[in-house]
């Protein structure tokens, strides 16, 4: 895996992005704007599900009207996010917050999959009775909390507190970021 990441970092596109003066900030700003569209529209979908907004619309109407925009936000958020990763592959790959973020995104994805699987089966009944099961409200709330945590951990990627090139780190941190440290370097660091 590391060899692949290392190779990715050596490609000309990655070097160009990394060394660009304006391209990186532009992509980063776009990433933030698409996060806003994604998270903000998801908020209203989940508010409808928990019963706090847009009660004039049925759940399936709300989904049909807002989810396409959420998905567009998601798509561009992922594209800009991949470009940001591509600019600094090694640093992100060995960044603790980046790994936490990916893990949280995986959880959010599983939660979304569970939610939509259930909704596709039951939404007609939800619309008819204007009632949704409690565990679905929990799932909608979990989705917001998880994406909020994704935003927080994403913001933290910028900080190098737990980076591989900042030793000594605890063994746990080095394990979590797949960082192998030459024991001689430890001895050297302990000596100073």
């Amino acid at each position: 895996m590391f060899n692949f990441i290392d190779w990715l970092a050596s490609t000309s596109g990655s070097i160009a992005l990394r060394e660009s003066l304006y391209m990186y900030p532009w992509i980063e700003s776009a990433h933030v704007l698409f996060i806003t569209i994604f998270f903000g529209t998801l908020l209203f979908v989940d508010l409808r599900l928990t019963g706090y907004g847009f009660k004039n619309l049925s759940i399936s109407q709300m989904n049909a009207k807002i989810l396409p925009l959420t998905l567009i936000g998601f798509l561009f958020m992922i594209i800009t996010g991949l470009l940001l990763f591509y600019a600094l592959p090694v640093r992100n790959y060995q960044n603790l917050f980046f790994r936490i973020k990916l893990f949280l995104m995986l959880l959010a994805g599983l939660n979304a999959w569970y939610f939509h699987r259930t909704m596709n089966r039951q939404s007609k009944a939800w619309d008819k009775n204007s009632f949704i099961p409690f565990r679905m409200k929990v799932s909608a709330t979990i989705s917001l909390v998880l994406w909020g945590l994704v935003i927080i951990s994403g913001r933290m990627i910028a900080y190098n507190w737990f980076d591989c090139d900042k030793q000594p780190q605890s063994e746990l941190v080095n394990f979590l970021i797949s960082c192998t440290v030459d024991p001689e370097i430890y001895e050297y660091l302990n000596g100073i």
């Binding site: 933030v32 704007l33 996060i35 998270f39 903000g40 209203f44 927080i152 913001r155 910028a158």
Partner: peptide
């Protein structure tokens, strides 16, 4: 600073949703 900034971003998400919709 980064923790406050993270919540600033979440606030931006909430405002952004209201603005976009």
């Amino acid at each position: 600073f980064p923790v406050i900034q993270s919540f600033h971003l979440i606030g931006l998400g909430i405002l952004g949703g209201a603005v976009v919709i």
